Amino acid sequence: MRITVLGGCGAWPAAGQACSGYLVEYDGFRVLIDPGYATLPRLLESVAAEEVDAVLVSHGHPDHCSDLNPLLRARALGDAPPAALPVHAPPGALDAVLALDNPRMLASSHVLYELAPGAVVELGPFRVDTWALPHHVPNAGLRLTAGGRTLAYTGDTGPAAELAELARDADLLLAEATYPERVPDEDAPYLSSALDAGRTASRAGAGRLVLTHLWPGTRPEAALEAAAKEYTGDLMVASGGLTVSF
């Protein structure tokens, strides 16, 4: 299994960067997770729009799904439109982004499936398990398994007992870490710090930890130092172009 980070900025894309976006590949099958702001140009540097086999969206904030619109446009308006793209997201999460165009124009470009908490989805060689995790809007934690390897992804989440199950013995935990050590009180139920992510990875026995969704302007070193207080394994920050095979 291989994951390529398209972007890891939280909230908005900083200069030269993109928001959340991850391409996961196994045995020639490509799953795009969270096509946030500015991720499509990064994606097209390595694969064509029609080569994406499925899309998973953790939640409906635009820094996690806005570039679904240009992705579907690229597929629908190209010279040889491919088959409809399976898109899985929590109920209602994509209403706004899909409303950007006349529904008729994109109607044949995708098939939308609701990602209900606790659902198990089969996407090519991938088994996808889901958890409802606390955020400002409904958010699905995702656990992708293929070929005996596992990627766990939190989306954006506050503290939750379910994180231990989501990340248990994962080969790689991709964890939201908006702040280095302390989440402001008003957001504490809905977001995580790098320190929190390190604690989750340690308790779950995750093989690697990749910190993502850092607030723009956050020094990656600060996030790494915070996570390392709780986690002693392989640790890195999600930045555009980072590729990890496991």
Score class of each variant (00 low, 15 high):
residue 8 G to I: 02
residue 198 G to T: 02
residue 109 S to G: 10
residue 122 E to T: 06
residue 30 R to D: 01
residue 164 A to Q: 08
residue 233 G to I: 02
residue 109 S to N: 05
residue 204 A to Y: 09
residue 167 A to F: 14
residue 128 V to W: 03
residue 231 Y to T: 06
residue 106 L to D: 07
residue 62 P to M: 01
residue 91 P to H: 08
residue 181 E to N: 10
residue 22 Y to S: 04
residue 13 P to E: 00
residue 64 H to G: 14
residue 202 S to L: 08
residue 132 A to T: 02
residue 181 E to L: 10
residue 100 L to W: 13
residue 36 G to S: 08
residue 139 N to Y: 05
residue 182 R to Y: 00
residue 125 P to S: 05
residue 180 P to M: 11
residue 140 A to W: 07
residue 18 A to N: 03
residue 13 P to V: 01
residue 157 T to D: 06
residue 88 H to K: 04
residue 108 S to T: 07
residue 137 V to D: 02
residue 233 G to R: 07
residue 58 S to W: 08
residue 196 D to M: 12
residue 200 T to F: 01
residue 191 L to D: 00
residue 102 N to F: 05
residue 161 A to Q: 08
residue 50 E to Q: 15
residue 159 P to E: 10
residue 5 V to F: 13
residue 93 A to N: 07
residue 74 A to C: 11
residue 117 P to R: 09
residue 17 Q to G: 12
residue 160 A to L: 03
residue 90 P to R: 08
residue 65 C to G: 07
residue 90 P to F: 00
residue 240 G to Y: 00
residue 77 L to S: 10
residue 118 G to Q: 13
residue 83 A to F: 03
residue 15 A to P: 11
residue 24 V to G: 03
residue 153 Y to N: 10
residue 245 S to M: 01
residue 57 V to R: 05
residue 35 P to R: 13
residue 104 R to N: 05
residue 64 H to W: 06
residue 131 W to D: 11
residue 105 M to R: 14
residue 29 F to K: 02
residue 156 D to V: 12
residue 55 V to P: 07
residue 135 H to N: 15
residue 31 V to K: 04
residue 144 L to P: 00
residue 76 A to G: 07
residue 5 V to G: 11
residue 209 L to I: 09
residue 19 C to D: 07
residue 176 E to Q: 15
residue 83 A to E: 13
residue 181 E to R: 15
residue 240 G to E: 06
residue 64 H to N: 06
residue 79 D to L: 09
residue 65 C to P: 01
residue 12 W to N: 04
residue 67 D to N: 10
residue 56 L to N: 09
residue 226 A to S: 13
residue 73 R to V: 12
residue 198 G to V: 05
residue 87 V to E: 04
residue 114 E to I: 01
residue 209 L to D: 00
residue 111 V to R: 14
residue 5 V to E: 04
residue 13 P to L: 10
residue 80 A to V: 06
residue 55 V to E: 10
residue 237 V to R: 11
residue 181 E to F: 04
residue 241 G to S: 11
residue 147 G to W: 12
residue 222 A to K: 09
residue 225 E to Q: 15
residue 44 L to G: 10
residue 73 R to L: 13
residue 218 T to V: 13
residue 161 A to P: 06
residue 48 A to S: 14
residue 151 L to S: 03
residue 32 L to N: 07
residue 194 A to K: 04
residue 180 P to C: 06
residue 143 R to M: 08
residue 123 L to K: 03
residue 117 P to L: 05
residue 50 E to D: 15
residue 191 L to W: 05
residue 233 G to Q: 00
residue 93 A to F: 05
residue 5 V to M: 09
residue 202 S to C: 12
residue 71 L to M: 01
residue 216 P to H: 03
residue 171 D to L: 10
residue 183 V to H: 01
residue 142 L to A: 01
residue 3 I to H: 04
residue 54 A to M: 15
residue 115 L to G: 04
residue 5 V to Y: 08
residue 118 G to T: 09
residue 30 R to V: 01
residue 241 G to W: 08
residue 149 R to L: 14
residue 223 A to R: 02
residue 79 D to E: 15
residue 105 M to W: 05
residue 91 P to K: 10
residue 35 P to Y: 11
residue 51 E to T: 06
residue 148 G to S: 12
residue 57 V to S: 04
residue 181 E to C: 03
residue 225 E to M: 12
residue 163 L to S: 12
residue 17 Q to D: 04
residue 215 W to S: 13
residue 154 T to E: 13
